[in-house]
Simulated scan of single mutants.
Amino acid sequence: MGLILCKWLIGAWAMLLHPFYVSVTEIRHNAAQQELQVSSRIFYDDLERTLKTEYKTPVDILHPANRKTVDGLIADYLGKHLRITIDGKPLALHYLGYQIEEDAAWCFLEVKGIAGVKKVHIINDILYTEHPEQINMMHVVVKDVRKSTKLDNPERVADFVF
């Protein structure tokens, strides 16, 4: 029993030394509203650190002195590191905002005027420069069909056909 507890404690300690770096992005086509709804769940401390490094400015996501400035940084960062093409047409994602839930920042984006979706091409390298071991999970939902994949840094491209 003592040996099992000791192995468990060593495993738990090792996990603390090697934290997980994971984001989850869901892209959902809402046919009724003819829009693409995008949400990305990113650990807020990792996002904050990445924004500080990339934009060389202090960033406080939890208690921003100026929410509009933080929103602008996140919008610009996601615009550079999450790119979506639908049926061969690159999209301009419209950033809606973010909210904090537990240890994550949920970032919301949309694209209006998307009547149908057959092929989805995604380039996602969120947090790759900051974390070589970053994993980005991708979920795409079209007509209630959900397809998923995992991108391990440096993989950044995912394609879905519906």
Rank of each mutant, 00 (worst) to 15 (best):
V120T: 15
T50L: 03
N136E: 10
L78P: 02
S40K: 00
R83F: 02
K143T: 02
I100M: 08
V59Y: 06
K89V: 14
N66K: 15
L93P: 01
D144F: 00
P64E: 01
A115S: 12
D45F: 07
H131F: 15
R67D: 02
V111Q: 15
K143W: 00
R41I: 08
L62D: 00
V140E: 05
L127K: 10
Q99K: 12
W106A: 10
W106Q: 14
L78C: 04
Q37N: 12
M137N: 14
E48F: 10
I114H: 06
V140F: 07
T53Y: 11
D60Q: 03
I100N: 06
I42E: 03
W106G: 05
A115Y: 02
V111W: 05
L127T: 09
V38D: 02
G97N: 13
I61L: 07
I42G: 01
T69E: 15
I126E: 08
I86Q: 04
I114C: 08
N66P: 05
L51R: 04
F108R: 11
Y98A: 03
V111Y: 06
H131G: 05
A105S: 07
Y98G: 01
G79H: 10
F43A: 11
N124R: 07
I114G: 06
S40T: 04
A115G: 03
A104N: 10
W106M: 15
E101I: 15
V120L: 13
G113Q: 09
K80Q: 14
L96A: 06
I114M: 07
Q37E: 12
I100Q: 07
V70D: 03
A65T: 15
V120E: 09
H81K: 12
V70W: 03
V141Q: 05
K89D: 04
I100T: 07
Y128G: 11
K80L: 09
D87V: 08
I100W: 04
L62M: 01
I86V: 15
L127M: 13
F43M: 11
